[in-house]
């Protein structure tokens, strides 16, 4: 018994140490799997499962059920059963393929620069800089900004007639760009918003992973005469590989679900994603089907298609990860 231990239990403990007891102390019953104790455990976890059941599992299954019906929003459970017709219609729907294409291009346009920038920023912040904590905190500010606020500000910046970006372009002698109405330009603009918002977040994740890379690796590399750049390529990147895979998966899921930015970028609340649907993503298409056109059966189908796409992406990422792990295991 130490001096520091002054919990109430010690009050009842004998002041004088008792002589050693010849019989072994009885096994404490604490860890026994008795049901009467566990019952409270169930009670504690119940709220989670009630919430999960009500707000995740039930909607998930109900969405699947609705997707098999020709249902309107005002009569969700009264639609007629149409089997897989909604899925067949979706595959033959130009709007779906257009939205899928947009989702992929915006996803690539935002995810790739975002992760590259994050990696670079994390590397810089890994050095001993003056005011390092300040920079690290500042990087998380975009992430803490609401999507709506950020998008509205960016939409103003990208405005055709009165936007500051076009004013700047004009000032340096370039032509004004009608950001919103062009296909590539609108997608780039939206990708900029996404990149701005998520780069800092990913950089912090990379930074945390970098800090767990043992310093000896760098010392050894330095002794072998590797430059900082070579150290980055051959020490940092390989050590970060699982983290990079993680951020790729998370960013991809985010990209498939992209919704708020394209919805608000047009500025007039339209769910079309531009007059030619030039930046309508799958999430926005689903919203348009369900909540503008009130065709909730078709919207449920699109929701399930999105789920399957995410499942495929995550599944292939997991396969890649496992394949790499196995190959590296074999190499050792």
């Amino acid at each position: 018994m130490t001096l520091a231990d002054d919990s109430p239990r010690t009050v009842t403990a004998p002041a004088v140490p008792a002589p050693p007891d010849p019989t072994p102390p009885p096994v404490p019953r604490r860890r026994g799997p008795s049901l009467s104790r566990n019952r409270w455990g169930y009670a504690y976890v119940a709220p989670f499962f009630v919430v999960f059941g009500a707000f995740s599992l039930f909607p998930f299954l109900f969405t699947a059920w609705v997707s098999l019906h020709d249902a309107r929003l005002s009569d969700i459970s009264g639609g007629t059963f149409v089997g897989l017709d909604n899925y067949a219609a979706l595959l033959g729907n130009d709007f779906f393929w257009n939205a899928l294409r947009n989702t992929i291009t915006i996803g690539v346009l935002s995810t790739v620069p975002q992760l590259c920038l994050a990696l670079g920023l994390a590397h810089l912040l890994h050095y001993k800089l003056r005011g390092r904590t300040f920079f690290r905190t500042v990087m998380l500010v975009p992430y803490a900004t609401s999507i709506a606020a950020a998008t509205l500000v960016f939409a103003t910046l990208f405005g055709r007639d009165y936007g500051i970006i076009n004013t700047a372009l004009e000032a340096v002698g370039l032509d004004r760009v009608d950001w919103e109405s062009g296909t590539l330009s609108s997608q780039v603009a939206i990708a900029v918003i996404v990149t701005w918002r998520w780069t800092g977040y990913n950089a912090l994740i990379y930074l945390a992973a970098m800090q767990s890379i043992p310093g000896e690796l760098y010392e050894a590399a330095e002794m072998d005469g590797a430059s900082k750049w070579r150290q980055f390529l051959h020490v940092t990147i390989p050590s970060l590989r699982p983290t990079i895979l993680f951020t790729v998966v998370v960013s991809t899921i985010g990209a498939v679900q992209l919704f708020g930015e394209p919805l608000l970028f047009g500025g007039n609340g339209a769910t079309t994603g531009g007059a030619r649907n030039q930046y309508q993503t799958l999430g926005l298409l689903m919203y348009q089907q369900g909540w503008t056109n009130f065709n909730i059966g078709q919207a449920a189908t699109t929701a399930w298609a999105m789920f399957l796409i995410i499942l495929a992406v995550v599944g292939s990422a997991a396969l890649v990860g496992r394949y790499r792990a196995r190959r590296e295991g074999a190499r050792r």
């Binding site: 007639d161 500025g267 609340g269």
Partner: peptide, 16 residues
């Protein structure tokens, strides 16, 4: 201009 967009709102005061 698309009606009810931000640019449309701004255009009112600019006599566009």
């Amino acid at each position: 201009l698309a009606q009810f967009s931000d640019e449309w709102n701004a255009a009112f005061s600019n006599g566009a």
